[in-house]
Write a protein that binds this DNA or RNA. Structure first.
Length: 464
RNA sequence: UCCUCAGUAGCUCAACGGCAGAGCGACCGGCUGUUAACCGGUAGGUUGCAGGUUCGAAUCCUGCCUGGGGAGCCA
């Protein structure tokens, strides 16, 4: 008798036809009749369940098995039968059903439709539902595909620090990291906490980006990437923001903004191809129940070129559009969410790179273009989610970078090491940040970031 | 943080100033191939919390809490 997984059975049930097999898993549904019953069993190895048929004449504990609740863990031994004419290709005729872990009648997950809001409250149980089983298997596969993509191209993965003293980047509000006692912290002369007495001897925080560190490594390994957690203490209450999320930040040397966009486009297409190929049942589920037609649209994206326009062109086409916007479009002002959505959803109907924004609305490290008015920055906007990538060519000219830091009130001493990278063998280089969860949202059609993170951390919410 | 909508049975919702209900789920029973099975029955409630108006409040008013959506910030 062989121990098998549902995944093995789905991949080749013929191999096990008429053999006795053993499967361990959790009851998704149980329907009993007078003399026989059916259990939909999920063992976690595959999106699908396997149907277990049990009969009174074959099971000594029939009455107990018939009363098994949803969520119970069982071990089933029985004969695998091919059923090509039925809705499922095979099933197991049980000889023995042993209860491994009971699930009483107050089990919150019922064989019916639940709201996402309710399932968030039972985040420890929701991975047992169809939707979250699919979401989190896809998340896992995508994480692997990200590494695969970069490793195949010879990129070096670096683990950027999670605790950092760098708070000059301005990417968002910071989570302070401290070992000082909040009720009894040593004070400086003016009555503020004295961080020179703190663990690191200075103010430290959780990272908001591994970019600056990645730049240092790009100027040693040429092509690198980070893939790790990122923390923003912004008071953001939207379906697209979380306090803790994962970011992929490639950084490439001897490369400009165009190389950067090429890499981003190649990466997105690679990730989608992986999912369409290896996550068929999950993608089919999303396409049918979450976002109608998702599979076809993603398929189209793999073969079509992404749109590429400059900020200036975007402003012109938005101004020409008949649509009346709540916020007027004006050169020099950042694009509002409604503008970004219009561009990607109404004008292009596909991913679009918007590049070369006015330098005043972009970060200090972005390279100033020859027109002196714009910076070599790019955002990738996609339908339904909005911005999933933000990137730029970095300012490699030490004198220009110093000017820009001064304009942003950043003390040179704070980022001396970053300036050093320009002083010693600095070359043009570029990179971007891909929001991992936003990519998952885009690829699955799931519209709330809280539903693509196992245990999401958002403002006022840190359960589990 | 601002705007907006909502909180009623385990879940999804109805009742909108006058007896608190349905569907699903659960439980019990029936059914020889079900597959979000089907048929019959039973149980299940401090209507988010606190206060106010009223003869009477789930319903109207005030404050708070929680959740959804939109905006800003961004990935």
């Amino acid at each position: 008798m062989e121990k098998v997984t549902v995944s093995q059975l789905v991949r080749g049930a013929e191999k096990y036809a008429d053999q006795t097999v053993n499967v361990n898993g959790w009851v998704r549904n149980n329907r009993d009749q007078k003399e026989f019953g059916f259990i939909a069993l999920n063992d976690g190895t595959h999106f699908n369940t396997v149907q277990v048929v049990y009969e009174k004449e074959n099971l000594g504990n029939y009455d107990r098995v018939a009363r098994l609740g949803v969520g119970s863990a069982i071990s089933v031994t029985g004969r695998l039968v091919l059923t090509p004419e039925a809705r499922q290709a095979f099933e197991i005729k049980a000889d023995r059903v042993a209860l491994e872990g009971d699930s009483p009648e107050d089990y919150p997950i019922q064989p019916k439709r639940h709201s996402r809001e309710f399932l968030r409250e039972v985040a420890h149980l929701r991975p047992r539902t169809n939707l979250f089983t699919a979401v989190f298997r896809v998340r896992s596969m995508l994480a692997f595909a990200v590494h695969q993509f970069f490793q195949e191209k010879g990129f070096v993965c670096l683990h950027a620090p999670i605790i950092t003293a760098n708070d000059a980047e301005g990417a968002g509000e910071l989570f302070r990291v401290t070992t000082l006692d909040p009720h009894n912290a040593p004070l400086t002369g003016d009555g503020k906490a004295d961080y020179s007495c703190d663990f690191f001897g200075k103010k430290t925080n959780l990272t908001v980006s591994g970019q600056l560190e990645a730049e240092a490594f790009a100027l040693a390994f040429k092509n690198v990437y980070t893939f790790g957690p990122t923390f923003r203490a912004e008071n953001s209450n939207t379906p697209r923001h979380a306090a803790e999320f994962w970011m992929i930040e490639p950084e490439i040397a001897f490369a400009d903004l165009n190389d950067n966009m090429n890499l981003a486009e190649e990466m997105i297409k690679y990730l989608i191809s992986c999912l369409l190929e290896k996550a068929e049942p999950e993608m089919a589920f999303f396409s049918q129940f979450v976002d109608k037609g998702l599979q076809e649209r993603l398929q189209d994206i793999v073969t079509a070129d992404f749109a590429r326009i400059t900020y200036t062109e975007a402003v012109e086409s938005l101004q020409k559009a008949k649509k009346k916007f709540e916020y007027p479009v004006e050169w020099g002002k950042d694009l509002q969410t409604e503008h970004e959505r219009f561009l990607t959803e109404k004008i292009f109907h596909k991913p679009v790179f918007v590049s070369d924004y006015p330098k005043e609305i972009k970060a200090f490290y972005m390279r100033v273009n020859d027109d002196q008015k714009t910076a070599a920055a790019m955002d990738l906007l996609v339908p339904g989610v909005g911005e999933i990538i933000g990137g730029s060519q970095r300012e490699e000219r030490a004198d220009v970078l110093k000017e820009r830091m001064a304009a942003f009130n950043i003390e040179p001493e704070e980022l001396q090491w970053y300036l050093d990278l320009r002083k010693y063998g600095g070359v043009k280089h570029a990179g971007f940040g891909l929001g991992f969860e936003r990519a998952i949202m885009y690829f699955t059609g799931v519209s709330n970031i809280r539903d693509v993170i196992p245990f999401p951390r958002t403002v006022n919410s840190c359960e589990f």
